[in-house]
Amino acid sequence: MSLEKEQKINYLLNSQPSGAVYLSSWLMENGFSTQLLNRYKKSNWIYSIGRGAWMRTGDTLTYQGALFSLQRQANLNIHLGGKTALSLLGKAHYLELSTKQIVLFGSSKEKLPAWFSNYDWGLKVNYHGSSFLPPKIGLQTLEQGAFSLLVSNPVRALLECLYLVPKKQELVECYEIMEGLNNLRPKQVQELLEKCTSIKVKRLFLYMAEKAKHDWFKYIELEKINLGKGKRSLVKEGVYISKYRITIPKALQNYE
Rank of each mutant, 00 (worst) to 15 (best):
N77K: 05
V172R: 14
L104I: 02
G138C: 03
Q190V: 07
V155E: 04
G31N: 02
G129K: 08
Y47P: 05
I78D: 04
T99W: 00
A85F: 01
T99C: 07
Y127L: 02
M208S: 09
I199A: 10
R51P: 00
E221G: 05
Y22A: 10
L139V: 14
G50N: 05
V155I: 07
G90A: 06
Y207H: 08
L12W: 00
T57Y: 00
G238D: 08
L112P: 05
R185S: 15
I225N: 08
Y63Q: 12
F105N: 10
L181M: 13
V201F: 06
Q190Y: 05
T60Y: 01
K5M: 07
C174F: 03
V155W: 02
K229H: 11
L184R: 11
G138T: 07
V172C: 14
L123E: 12
S33M: 01
K111R: 13
Y244H: 10
G230A: 12
S43D: 15
Y255K: 11
L150F: 04
V189S: 07
S69I: 01
G122M: 02
L222R: 14
I49Y: 02
K167I: 02
S18R: 08
M28D: 14
L192P: 02
K213L: 10
V103N: 06
L184M: 13
C161E: 02
N226I: 08
F132C: 09
C196L: 00
E29W: 03
K200V: 06
D215S: 15
N10G: 10
L149E: 09
V125T: 12
